[in-house]
Amino acid sequence: MKLSIGAMVEPGSTRTNKTGSWRTFKPIIDVEACIGCGTCSMFCPEGTIYKVADKYTIDYDYCKGCGICAHECPVKAIEMVMEEE
């Protein structure tokens, strides 16, 4: 591996590491039930739940499946389901 001067690296370059492969349970947002409050997005340790229009969507490339979003959702609109092969 070649070191750059000052060992500097590109900002935000951990994105090359797709942590979605860590996941055992997958959060699924029920868009009908979602009230768009943003609690899930605020608490996500990966910062990988985004607002699209008035609802929220999860980027499964990085979601580790911790389940904080489902646990904290005030209207229980997120369900954790077992990942399939």
Binding site: T14, T19, G47, C66, G67
Partner: peptide
């Protein structure tokens, strides 16, 4: 950015 190595949760 995501992709960091923090534990799930």
């Amino acid at each position: 950015a995501p992709g960091h190595r923090g534990c799930a949760g």
